[in-house]
Computed example of a mutant assay.
Amino acid sequence: MSDTVNRQILLIEKPTGKLGLEHFKMVNGSIPEPKDGEALVRTRYISLDAANRAWMHGATYRAAVEANTVMAGGSIAEVIASKAPSLAPGDLVFGDTGWQDYAAVPAKHLNKMPKMEPMTHLLSVYGIAGLTAYFGLLHVGRPKEGETVVVSAAAGSVGSIVGQIAKIKGCNVIGIAGGKEKCKWLTSELGFDAAVDYKDGATFKALRAAAPKGIDVYFDNVGGEILEACLALMNNRGRIACCGAISQYDGVPSAHGPRGVPGLLVVKRLVMQGFIVMDFMDQSATALADLQSWVASGKLKVQEDVIEGIENTPKALIGLLAGENRGKRMVRV
């Protein structure tokens, strides 16, 4: 990484279909000067998330990413210079730096992070992925011991942690993932009770066989047809935690599914709730204490997928959307 050049990856065109390498361009920019209240940070690890793709469609819980701007994204970064009393050179922070070597960011938009090895854990199990899994499952899904919990995109950064926390809480856990290898990994390495390969095409049948007593909690990362299949198998007073809709993000959003929702919600008295992790940040200390103790005791295994080089960030995001990753994907700048 040069000390005089700021490599930046721009989104040069908003995709109308699937995201491709042609939608990005790497340029050399200048290193910004921090203004009062800002810190100059150097990006260390860029977080890759399906939500990166959703931001290109339009405003979500953040402003849309516009064409010909630095691609937005969160990262772990190191403070190089600070014009804010709360931050000093050498501090580690998490914030929306975008896909670039250096960024000047208001200190109020940066979260100071503890120094730890490996630093990557600050983006995975102790970062947005781990906290999303923790709060979405425990505060929205509210599983009880002995209940059946199903999680989609179960081999991904959030899903792989959701399933393991559900096991720690004494639940029967079924993961839905793409491909035999991922399914085998969930049951043999992460301790899931069963795994369903949605690429087999008979998702509903396989789910019904894996969950003969029905589903009490469904943690939804994908939406679409898989949500529809799970809805039909929900038990009375079941809870659905809606975390994302990966199936709708890349390419032309499908109009499909889930059908029959209002009737099922009423008849089965289901609770279906969307959430974002920012809603729970005032309780993050408790969550982190739990996550750290589970990792230390070996109950929670951390899987990370680290790609080398900022120039590979577009390809890494495209791969993530295609389901290439196992665990949390990030780019070491």
Rank of each mutant, 00 (worst) to 15 (best):
L11H: 07
L11N: 05
E13T: 15
E13H: 11
K14Y: 10
L19M: 08
L19E: 03
G20M: 09
F24L: 07
K25F: 04
M26W: 04
M26R: 04
V27P: 13
S30G: 11
S30H: 08
P32V: 15
P32A: 13
E33T: 15
P34N: 01
D36A: 11
G37F: 10
A39P: 06
A39W: 07
A39V: 09
A39N: 10
L40N: 08
L40H: 07
V41F: 03
R42Y: 01
R42V: 03
T43P: 06
I46W: 13
S47C: 06
S47Y: 01
L48G: 15
D49F: 01
A50P: 15
A51L: 13
N52T: 02
R53A: 11
A54M: 11
A54P: 00
A54S: 11
G58F: 03
A59E: 13
A59L: 08
Y61K: 09
Y61M: 02
Y61Q: 12
R62Y: 05
R62P: 01
R62C: 08
A63F: 10
E66Q: 08
E66I: 00
E66N: 05
A67K: 13
A67Y: 04
T69F: 00
T69C: 05
T69D: 02
V70F: 01
V70P: 04
M71A: 15
S75F: 00
I76Y: 03
A77G: 02
E78S: 13
I80Q: 09
I80V: 15
S82G: 13
S82C: 15
S82D: 10
A84V: 07
A84H: 11
P85A: 10
S86T: 09
L87A: 05
G90H: 12
D91W: 07
L92M: 08
V93C: 15
V93I: 14
F94N: 10
F94H: 03
D96T: 12
D96V: 12
D96I: 14
T97V: 12
T97W: 09
G98P: 05
W99L: 03
Q100D: 07
D101S: 05
A103Q: 03
P106K: 08
P106Q: 04
P106T: 14
K108Q: 09
L110I: 10
L110Q: 09
L110T: 09
L110K: 04
N111P: 12
N111W: 14
N111I: 15
K112T: 15
M113L: 11
M113R: 10
K115L: 12
M116Y: 10
E117D: 13
M119R: 14
M119G: 06
M119P: 06
T120P: 03
T120C: 02
T120L: 06
L123F: 12
V125I: 12
V125E: 01
G127Y: 05
G127K: 00
I128V: 05
A129W: 00
L131V: 15
L131S: 10
L131N: 11
T132K: 00
T132H: 00
T132N: 05
T132C: 04
Y134R: 00
F135W: 01
G136H: 00
G136N: 11
L137V: 01
L138V: 03
H139R: 15
V140P: 04
G141S: 02
P143T: 09
P143A: 02
G146L: 11
G146R: 03
V149M: 12
V150H: 04
S152W: 06
S152R: 13
S152D: 15
A153G: 13
A154G: 07
A154E: 12
A155V: 02
G156C: 01
S157F: 10
S157R: 10
